[in-house]
């Protein structure tokens, strides 16, 4: 900073002259007007902080809910696969269709304890089965998820399945392994296949012996374009007539 001027022997101001200029009331009034803006208040930052925290927690909860949904779906899938393996599906289906006709306590008073347990466990599986059916829409064409001719879950026509040669994946995934559970005409089987091909023999068995039944494609594994292995969502398909 440059010194602009030097005064020599300027007439000094007296104490009274300076005192006459005291203006505390004016300063007090102006100072109270000069209150800091709301954005400088700790309350403002407190409110912003709390709302951010709440948003974060809300988003986290949403994420957890989605995760829980996926886990639940997966558990139901597993239960159904297990039920299927134990030929429960065949027992369950009549109960689903005629759930109201399940014998009441009065009528079943003569049943043995073993029968009661059998009925209760069958009903539990039936209830889960219905829950799964509600969770999984009948037909779902999706882009990106593993699918057969664009159908990832729900009903698939036998003619479509007949022509489908591979399990597709819309993203940059290459499916390199999967497991399929189905009825081969004699028994429930579990087959693990490499690659994404649906062999003609498999398709034939699926169409001939599993019409109206659920077929489960699980443990789908893929590799993305970066070479990272990924677990892909399962497919639950009901093969229906054309």
């Amino acid at each position: 900073m440059e010194i602009k001027k030097i005064n020599l022997d300027r007439k000094p101001l007296t104490v009274d002259q300076i005192k006459a200029k005291e203006n505390f009331s004016e300063i007090l009034a102006n100072a109270s007007l000069n209150k800091p803006g709301i954005w400088k208040s700790p309350w403002f930052y407190g409110a912003i902080g709390l709302s951010s925290l709440a948003s974060f927690m809300l988003l986290s909860t949403d994420f957890e809910t989605k995760k829980e949904f996926n886990v639940k779906t997966s558990t139901l899938n597993n239960n159904l696969v297990q039920a299927n393996n134990n030929s429960y599906i065949k027992q369950v289906k009549p109960y689903i269709e005629t759930e109201k006709q399940v014998p009441s306590k009065k009528n079943s008073s003569n049943n043995s304890l073993k029968d009661k347990i059998q009925v209760n466990s069958t009903l539990a599986v039936a209830s889960e089965y219905k829950e799964l059916e509600q969770l999984v829409p009948q037909v779902k064409k999706v882009n990106g998820l593993p699918s057969i001719a664009g159908i990832a879950n729900g009903a698939i026509k036998s003619s479509i399945l007949k022509d489908a040669e591979v399990i597709e994946s819309g993203f940059d995934f290459k499916i390199n392994e999967y497991k399929v559970n189905y009825f081969n005409g004699y028994k429930e089987v579990e087959e693990r296949l490499e690659g994404n091909a649906l062999p003609a023999e498999l398709r034939e068995k699926l169409i001939n012996y599993n019409l109206g039944e659920m077929v489960f494609f699980t443990e789908l594994k893929g590799v993305d374009n970066l070479g990272i292995n990924r677990d892909l969502p399962s497919m639950n398909l009901r093969i229906v007539k054309n």
Partner: peptide, 21 residues
């Protein structure tokens, strides 16, 4: 003070008395 010099409300001045010199 420096703010008022920057805002050009005032000029930096030095006031001296002869006896101080």
């Amino acid at each position: 003070l420096y703010q008022s010099f920057r805002d050009k409300k005032a000029e930096r001045t030095v006031n001296i008395e002869s006896c101080q010199l």
